[in-house]
């Protein structure tokens, strides 16, 4: 099983990579952080004796991706699985953010994901099944004030994945969209979860469990995977409310939590 992972040296990337390595899959890992990739490769080789290839790449740049693809083509690697994990978000309201950062959210979360998906699907192993994972977010299910660009970029992924799933059904490709709530991957993420209080801890998912279930599910069935009973309930209830009402509720809740969060951050 040859697996391609983007954003591999981040928290979720490392967990998915470890899950795949523990199953004996061969890994091709990419991330913009070259040092992180190198450390992860070393760790996976030592822990699991895994077969790992890494290549640092800025997937928002055509040239950078082309160089990586040339390397792949030169060695003739073909893939059975793709995890689109690379993604980014910046805290703060639309106007408080630098214009460049806002645009970067779309160019990484959307454009780069399309670029990689196209490239790796074109390099799938022939005659075999292919598993394709998009890491979207619970945020993709609603319009989210104060996370407007991020939520919309993830919305793109959720809808795109659903449509692509139909296109590729007959081609033996399973498409899974992962929509997690909060993932405790970094110190920053954890302080953010803490600032949201009760709702923060209820919607937080266990990283190791999400990694296991994602790798498990994408090979069995396609569709939407929302980890956590509370998150599934929230997303179900959300279907009965008009989107404008949901946006208003989220704005109210988030503006309070963010104030608190920014306060504790500056302490």
């Amino acid at each position: 099983m040859n697996v391609f992972i983007t954003g591999a040296s981040g928290g979720l990337g490392r967990a998915i990579a470890a899950e795949c390595a523990s199953r004996g899959y061969k890994l091709f890992l990419t991330d913009i952080n070259e040092e992180g990739l190198h450390s992860l490769q070393t760790g996976l080789e030592r822990q699991y004796g895994a077969c790992v290839t890494t290549r640092a790449c800025d997937i928002t740049k055509d040239e950078s991706v082309d160089e990586m693809l040339a390397l792949i083509d030169a060695s003739g690697i073909r893939f059975d699985m793709l995890f689109n994990i690379a993604g980014i978000d910046y805290e703060g309201s639309f106007l408080e953010r630098e214009c460049r950062s806002v645009v970067k959210i779309v160019s990484l979360n959307v454009e780069a994901t399309l670029r990689i998906t196209h490239a790796i699907l074109s390099r799938r192993r022939e005659n075999g099944a292919f598993s394709l994972v998009f890491v979207s977010s619970l945020a993709s299910l609603y319009p989210m004030p104060l996370k407007a660009t991020y939520a919309a970029s993830k919305r793109f992924l959720t809808d795109f994945a659903e449509a692509l799933r139909q296109e590729l059904k007959s081609k033996n490709v399973k498409v899974l969209t992962l929509c997690p709530g909060g993932l405790p991957t970094t110190e920053e993420a954890i302080s953010g979860i803490a600032a949201q209080g009760f709702w923060g801890s209820v919607t937080t998912n266990r990283l190791e469990q999400v990694a296991f279930e994602t790798v498990e599910k994408v090979q069995k069935r396609a569709g939407l995977y929302i980890p956590g009973a509370a998150n599934r309930t929230l997303s179900f209830l959300g279907k009965f409310l008009p989107r404008s009402v949901i946006a208003a509720i989220i704005y109210k809740r988030w503006s309070g939590a963010q104030e608190k969060w920014l306060c504790t951050e500056s302490k």
């Binding site: 928290g11 490392r14 967990a15 470890a18 040092e35 992180g36 030592r46 991957t185 954890i190 266990r206």
Partner: peptide, 11 residues
């Protein structure tokens, strides 16, 4: 650590 979190090596 309250949650499963890993180092750069994935430990």
């Amino acid at each position: 650590r309250s949650w499963y979190q890993t180092t750069a090596e994935g430990y």
